[in-house]
Amino acid sequence: MYPRIKASALKSSPILAAVLLAACGGGGGDSSSEGPTSAKANSSADLPPGAYYTVINYDSGGSDEAVTFLSSSGKFVTAVDSPDITIGTLKFGSDNSITGTGTDVFYTTSWETSSGSVSGSIQAKGNATLTATAPGYESTVTLEREDDYSDRGVTLAEVSDTYSMTASGSTTTITIAADGSLTGSDTSGCVYNGQLTIPDTDYNVFEVSFKASNCGGSDGELRNGQYSGLGAYDPEKDEVQFLGSDGEVAAAFLGTRT
């Protein structure tokens, strides 16, 4: 929600089809950027977990379309472009108010971050308007839930398998076991170990955490780190999709079942 790189993302299914996802590399830190671990549900107009079509209007002019994943824990990830995601946490008040924090992780000539706050309100079930503020920056963000995509639900039994993605000349393979454990590697030498968790199987959104180690190449040290993020399963494409960060760099995976 604090983007620096502009890219168009169309409202479509699969939800991530028009977001320019690629192998973003990994980060150097060993801690993830997380806020509070729970969000209070509203008693009137709720903002359910799932995928949200997102429009960002900048105070300096112009706008972008993006996608946001929201978990039942209150964690969210917004993606404008593969090297530009915002990860944070939202909390909901009984008066339909929304507050939260987030960190934008983006790449220009090097990886940078910008942290700020989020405030706003739920306008109707599945729709919200937010203001994202960071030092020297402000934007107005609208969220519109993709109900069909989000309400199909997801289970570990459904997603457990091996998935592969090839981007920027590198192939990444991830295996999700029946207990949610995540393992994988890529052709640069990176080894991935982590966990996929589904907070509520009624909604098509999951949380993921993993460690990247042993990464090779000139940027290998940058790609080693501990990541956390959110994702979803697209049954039409047989794809697992997730976005994450270690608080210093961004990572994205859009893998097809092998």
Rank of each mutant, 00 (worst) to 15 (best):
D200Q: 06
G35A: 08
C24D: 07
D202M: 02
R145S: 13
K6I: 13
P235Q: 08
E65Q: 12
D186V: 07
T175R: 11
L20T: 08
S121T: 13
L130K: 06
N127W: 01
D238Q: 12
E207M: 14
V205A: 08
Y227F: 14
L10M: 10
I176T: 09
A39N: 00
V191N: 06
R223T: 15
E146T: 04
S114R: 13
K211W: 00
G225V: 09
P235N: 07
Q241W: 05
L90D: 00
L16G: 12
N127V: 07
D179H: 07
T173Q: 15
A157D: 13
E112M: 15
A45L: 11
N57K: 14
A51W: 11
G231Y: 10
A45V: 00
S160K: 06
D234E: 13
G100V: 06
T68P: 10
E112A: 15
L230Y: 01
T187V: 01
A178L: 14
K237C: 05
Y203F: 14
G194R: 04
E236P: 01
G255H: 03
V154C: 08
T166N: 02
A7N: 09
D84H: 01
A41H: 15
Q195K: 14
T173I: 12
G29N: 14
A66M: 11
T113K: 11
T86D: 01
Y163R: 06
S245K: 04
T166E: 06
S43I: 10
A252K: 08
S188I: 07
S82C: 08
Y192F: 15
A167V: 00
Y2W: 04
G126Q: 05
R4A: 14
D246A: 04
S185D: 05
N214W: 00
D81Q: 05
A66L: 12
T155S: 11
S38F: 13
T89Q: 13
T89A: 11
S188A: 06
S114H: 04
R4K: 14
A134W: 00
W111T: 12
P36Y: 09
A212I: 15
A7R: 07
T183I: 00
S188V: 03
E34Q: 12
D95A: 12
A177D: 13
I56T: 02
A252G: 13
S33R: 04
T103Q: 12
P36C: 11
F69V: 10
G29V: 10
S71K: 00
T256Q: 07
E236M: 03
S119P: 00
N204R: 04
S121W: 12
T258M: 03
T54F: 15
G217E: 10
T187I: 05
A232R: 07
E248P: 01
G244Q: 12
A124C: 03
D246R: 08
P83Y: 03
W111V: 10
S114Y: 00
S82Y: 03
T171D: 04
G26V: 06
G247R: 04
A128H: 02
G25A: 01
P14N: 09
T258I: 12
Y192S: 02
L90V: 01
P36Q: 05
S63T: 08
T140N: 11
S33G: 03
D200R: 12
V105S: 06
T187A: 04
K11N: 15
W111C: 13
L21H: 05
G180A: 09
P83H: 02
A232P: 04
P14R: 09
